[in-house]
Amino acid sequence: MPTLLVLFVTVPLAELFLLIEVGQVIGALPTIALCLLTAMLGAALLRQQGLQTLARARGNLDQGALPAIELLEGVALVIGGVLLLTPGLVTDGVGFVCLLPFTRLWLVRLVLARLSVRVGPSGGGGPQSPGAGDDPHVIEGEYERRDEHHR
C-alpha cells in the first residue's frame, strides 16, 4: 500500500513540475497543445495497435492456441490508453511505452518473467500428482458442479 501512496503523490508532482518547466520554455498555449496532440496521437495509436493485437489473438484462437501474450498486450494497451488520456507529459511518456509494439512486448515479457504460471489438467490432484507440494501457496482441492435444474 505505501507504494501506491508514493505513486499518487509523486506522479502528480512530477507532472506539475514538468508542465511548468516546459511551459516556461515554450509557453503555456504550446504546452497545452502538446498535451492535446499527445492525447490524439495516443488515441490513434491505441486504435491501430488494439486492432492488430485483437487480430493476432483471434488468429491464435483459430489455431487452437491460447493468446496469452496478446491478452497481456491488451492489458498494456488499456493502461497506455488511460495514461495518454491523463493530462501530463510523464504519463504520456509511460503511455507511449505501453502502446509502441516493441516496448510493449518488452514489458509483457518482463511481466511474464516475474510470474509463475502453471497449467495442467484439472481433477484427480493429490499428493502424488506432479507439482503437488512444491508451492506452499497452492491449495489442492476438488469441486462439484451443481446446476440449478439438477437439484
Rank of each mutant, 00 (worst) to 15 (best):
H150A: 10
M1Q: 14
P127R: 10
L34A: 15
V111M: 09
I20M: 11
A113G: 12
L16A: 08
I69G: 04
S129F: 09
L16R: 07
V108N: 00
R47L: 14
R151H: 08
H150C: 02
V108H: 02
P67T: 06
N60W: 00
L85S: 04
E140P: 05
V9I: 13
G141A: 10
Y143K: 07
I69A: 13
L77M: 02
L54R: 13
G59T: 05
Q52R: 15
G59D: 07
A113V: 05
T31E: 05
V111Y: 11
T10V: 10
A14F: 09
L83Y: 01
G74K: 01
V94F: 15
F96W: 08
L89F: 10
A44D: 08
F96E: 02
R146D: 03
G123T: 05
L7T: 05
L41Y: 07
R146T: 13
L89I: 14
E70C: 03
L66N: 09
L84W: 04
G133Q: 02
I32L: 15
R145P: 04
L37K: 06
R118G: 06
G50L: 01
W106N: 00
L115V: 12
L72D: 02
V90F: 11
R151G: 06
E70K: 06
V9F: 13
L7M: 12
T103N: 04
E21W: 14
P87C: 02
G120I: 00
F8H: 11
L37R: 08
A44T: 12
A55S: 07
D134K: 10
E15T: 08
N60V: 00
R58N: 04
L85F: 14
I26R: 03
G59N: 08
R56W: 09
G42D: 03
P67N: 05
Q63I: 08
L5R: 09
G80Q: 01
G124L: 04
M40W: 12
L37M: 13
R118A: 09
R47Q: 08
D62E: 13
D92C: 15
G59C: 00
Q49M: 09
L13E: 03
W106V: 00
R104K: 09
G50Q: 13
T86Q: 07
V138L: 14
M1A: 15
G125Y: 03
R118L: 08
G42R: 03
E73R: 13
A33T: 14
P101D: 02
V78S: 09
G124A: 01
V11K: 04
G64R: 01
G95W: 03
H150L: 12
H137G: 09
F17V: 07
